[in-house]
């Protein structure tokens, strides 16, 4: 099994050597959107809550990043922290209400909160929030100060490894999180709510915690995106972007942390190539989504796992 884990890690570390410059950026974007999709897998695959609000926290990450650089003159580290803080600050009140809602209500509540946040931001009020999106900070230099050396973010090798490092670290922490007693309790309440309640688990607290953790992850992915693209968009808050997380995570496999990254890679490569020949490739994505749900609800990663088991057993 160690071999199976070692090969992909080595491959990811060596990958930039065989890639062209723009491809390195493309792969870094896959990491970022994959992290976003993984935040959905945390809420849904582990927490059992079908959330259409992940985009709100991605957007909050983008804006939080820009707010930090614009108002406080933060460097990259500070801006990433402010992005995560912004996502958590938004997730806490939404989570307080949403996690009280039963399964069906939960989805509706998350959709409606996405609409609410999107409407407030697009209404033209609260310009102090929307401001940094229009007029970005002039003093902010996209670079990574490491103390002894400062790496410029205009070098795509830096972009690649910086993103990879952050994403790997986050996936590692999330893996610890879901395999901890807390994570087990989380899955228990998802699989059998009444039983979990009877053995004394605080279900609302479990749900709320994973909701906020997933929001922080989505916020981090938003920050990494804002740093990479030097661009934010109000559209990132809209619930069709949350739908994107659902699509990518479900295609890859929603009951794991790796699956969403595979789904994202499939989605982005397909989008990149299909859109050249067929402008409305989203129709195909919709069809693929329906077929995956119908025939392999565990997603592509589920299929790979079955294949690996067979291969190692034989």
């Amino acid at each position: 099994m160690l071999l199976f884990a070692g090969i992909p890690v080595a491959a990811l570390l060596l990958l930039p050597m065989v890639l062209a410059e723009f491809q390195r950026i493309f792969v870094a974007e896959i990491f970022i959107w994959g992290l976003f999709a993984m935040s959905f897998a945390l809420v849904y695959g582990y927490g059992g809550m079908l959330s259409f609000a992940q985009a709100v926290f991605f957007g909050a990450g983008c804006y939080g990043f820009n707010l930090g650089t614009f108002y406080y003159g933060f460097n990259t580290w500070g801006a990433i922290i402010s992005a995560v803080v912004a996502a958590i600050a938004l997730a806490a009140p939404i989570g307080l209400i949403a996690t009280r809602a039963r399964s069906h209500h939960f989805l509706i509540v998350t959709v409606i909160f996405s609409v609410l946040v999107y409407m407030i931001l697009s209404s033209g009020h609260w310009r102090w929030i929307a401001g940094p999106y229009v007029t970005r900070s002039l003093t902010f230099v996209p670079e990574v100060p490491l103390g002894f050396v400062t790496l410029s973010y205009s070098n795509e090798i830096v972009v690649y490894y910086f993103t990879l490092a952050f994403v790997t670290l986050t996936v590692g922490l999330c893996a610890l999180f879901v395999s901890s007693p807390f994570g087990r309790a989380l899955v228990a309440q998802k699989d059998n709510e009444m039983r979990a309640q009877l053995i004394g688990l605080n279900i609302i607290l479990l749900r709320f915690t994973v909701f906020v953790v997933a929001a922080a992850v989505a916020g981090l992915s938003g920050a990494l995106y804002a740093l990479l693209a030097r661009y934010t968009n109000l559209e990132f808050f809209s619930w069709s972007y949350s739908g994107l997380a659902v699509v990518m995570a479900v295609i890859g496999g929603v009951n794991s942390l790796i699956g969403p990254f595979i789904g994202t890679a499939i989605y982005m490569v397909a989008a990149e190539h299909l859109s050249r020949y067929f402008e409305s490739f989203t129709i195909l994505i919709g069809i693929i989504l329906i077929l995956v749900v119908r025939y392999t609800p565990m997603g592509v990663w589920g299929l790979i796992q079955i294949f690996l088991k067979k291969a190692s057993g034989a």
Binding site: L50, G243, V246, V247, V250, T282, I283, I285, G286, I287, L289, I290, V293, R294
Partner: peptide, 9 residues
């Protein structure tokens, strides 16, 4: 999820 796929289509 399927309904969302339909929505995309």
């Amino acid at each position: 999820v399927v309904a969302f796929g339909l929505s995309l289509i």
